[in-house]
Structure formats: structure tokens, C-alpha cells
């Protein structure tokens, strides 16, 4: 499978990067945590693979639908 995008489902601030570039993740693992309404909302891997790039930094504001990371095999 080629590179696949990981999108934020909500507009929120990036709280913490959980899986940096190179990390192996399983489907459903949190790649990063957003903070919304005082809660930590994971952005989960849509499939298993390796994190190729994380395109945002902690503290950044991301928009709903924004690509925040990419996965590769």
C-alpha cells in the first residue's frame, strides 16, 4: 500500500505527539492527541503501518479534515 494520510476529525489544538516518524502503529493506535473541551482526543491510525511524517507540532491549531500525519508500510 502506498502512503496514506491521517486526518484530524475535529478542529482543535495539538496536545501531544504520541507516535513520531518511524514508529510502527497498529490500526486504531493514537498518532497524536488533540485537546478539545479539556479532553484528550486521539487521532488514530486508520490502518497499521509506519508513521512516515507528522505534519504538525504540539500547540498547533488543526482544522477538521486537515492531514496531520502520513503512514507508509
Amino acid at each position: 500500500m502506498a502512503e496514506s494520510p491521517v486526518k484530524a476529525e475535529i478542529t482543535a489544538a495539538v496536545w501531544k505527539i504520541e507516535a513520531g516518524p518511524g514508529t510502527r502503529v497498529a490500526e486504531g493506535d493514537a498518532i497524536l492527541l488533540l485537546e478539545s473541551m479539556k479532553m484528550e482526543i486521539p487521532v488514530a491510525a486508520p490502518r497499521s503501518g509506519r508513521v512516515k511524517a507528522v505534519l504538525v507540532a504540539e500547540g498547533d491549531l488543526v482544522e477538521e479534515g486537515q492531514v496531520v500525519a502520513t503512514l507508509e508500510d
Binding site: 482543535a12 478539545s36 473541551m37 482526543i41
Partner: peptide, 8 residues
């Protein structure tokens, strides 16, 4: 669904 804005 707390995954969306904590359920707000």
C-alpha cells in the same frame, strides 16, 4: 460521542 469535541 466524546471523540468529537468531548461530546460538546
Amino acid at each position: 460521542d466524546p471523540f468529537f469535541y468531548g461530546g460538546s
